[in-house]
Design a protein around this nucleic acid. Structure first.
Lengths: 231, 231
DNA sequence: AGAGTTGGCATTGGATACATTCATCGCATA
DNA sequence: TATGCGATGAATGTATCCAATGCCAACTCT
């Protein structure tokens, strides 16, 4: 996984398949491609001026990321989640992200924490949804990515990515209501981190994710998209 | 993921790449291929009487499973874990398998539970290590696979698979000592399941995995294998 | 003699061309 | 009219061939 979330700009590889994969991932995460949308190999190949071979490899890379589903002799689609599956992803996050935070808590620098504090404020003043989501992502990710290695990090990045389209729709719906609670939770989390209080930080983070999941569970309309979902 | 663990024999697909992937996965899980071992595309292609294209796709499938690592313009290796990474995988399992068990607890049939009981006994009499590991896997998997769907199931299967080589070596080392505790834990777990006691079952399972992890942490020699590890 | 450079070889990455599969639609038939 | 069969076409799967990369050893130059 390219760890795009960590803001470590991976130097542009000259391997075509990974470049195509990177571009596709960006398109999916930005919402240009929607969950359930069909992906045609030949179309993509033409679009990139390449043959279908690197396109296929790119698709397989995205399968690894959980962003694409491929079915033999049938085709590839942007991954889509049912409401239950999305809820499941959130429950996994509830249990894993506090663990990852604990891993990192001792290693966070003062600069990390200062930046996290800035981001809490920036989120409050975010002019639009995309900006807010970018800040939110950076805020949490700062607290996750100090310790390097870590298949846990990759795993959680995948979970963020696969749920991102739904989070976007969801937040568009409930933009005004409940956002205050989110800011409060961020502040509490930041305070716990400053105190290096693992248990408290874990607890707040768990509740933060859990609350979002429960709200999301109340909005089935988020998952009523127009495309076939075949996964 | 082919869900091989669930004993649902996937009918042999006539798509070459998936057949090659299945065979490779089997070879890795059985120990015929060791962590860190180099995989040469051409060699494999010849071995299967195929071209390198489906071999490459097979390797990408195994990357998705976490069983293979690929590096651009360099090659592919059977995934290997450092001791820290393995410990990390176990910590993830500690948090996720209890959740999966909870998901399934209400749906388990009497036949499931009966079979689980048989397996507890069979494990006590297992003549060799491989047999024991197969029973152990089936025992836990029965309690995990009643509820279908579930990316959680796939995720946990991956974690079992990637740690399997080390579990094998580890159990070979400590075969005699501590196995009694394992049997006891299995019995307690089974009892909790019979009572449909989610909290207790979660707790026992958590401790079961945790105890194994801590023992594993005490045996660095398990991770001293002869191959290059480049992940 | 030692360090940097260059060439070749082994291996992976990609393009073209062909084979195969699957879904769809039309048509014949009960 | 409903059903089932078969042709058709669009998409994916695979083989073969060629290009590009990277490693390693031999060689040159100082």
């Amino acid at each position: 996984m390219t760890r795009s979330m960590t803001m470590t700009n991976t130097p542009p590889t000259n391997v075509l398949s990974t470049r195509i994969a990177d571009e596709l991932r960006r398109a999916i995460l930005s919402g240009e491609l929607s969950p359930g949308e069909r992906i045609r190999q030949e179309e993509l190949a033409e679009q990139f001026g390449a043959s279908r071979i690197p396109v296929r490899e790119a698709l397989r890379i995205l399968v690894t990321d959980g962003l694409v589903n491929m079915v033999s002799n049938s085709g590839a689609w942007v991954s889509s989640l049912t409401q239950d599956e999305c809820s499941e992803h959130y429950q996994i996050r509830e249990r894993l992200e506090p663990l990852l935070l604990r891993y990192n808590l001792g290693a966070l620098t003062d600069a990390d924490i200062a930046r996290a504090g800035e981001l809490v404020e920036l989120m409050k003043q975010a002019p639009d949804l995309e900006t807010f989501m970018r800040y939110d992502r950076e805020f949490h990710w700062i607290t996750y990515s100090r310790v390097e290695t870590n298949s846990l990090t990759d795993l959680i990045e995948k979970l963020w990515n696969t749920t991102q389209p739904y989070r976007r729709v969801f937040m568009k719906l409930v933009r005004s209501g409940g956002i205050e609670v989110t800011h409060l939770e961020h502040e509490l989390l930041l305070e716990a981190i400053k105190r290096r209080d693992s248990d408290e930080a874990e607890s707040i983070l768990h509740g933060h994710i859990r609350r979002t999941r429960i709200e999301l569970d109340r909005h089935p309309e988020v998952f009523a998209h127009e495309f076939d979902k075949s996964d």
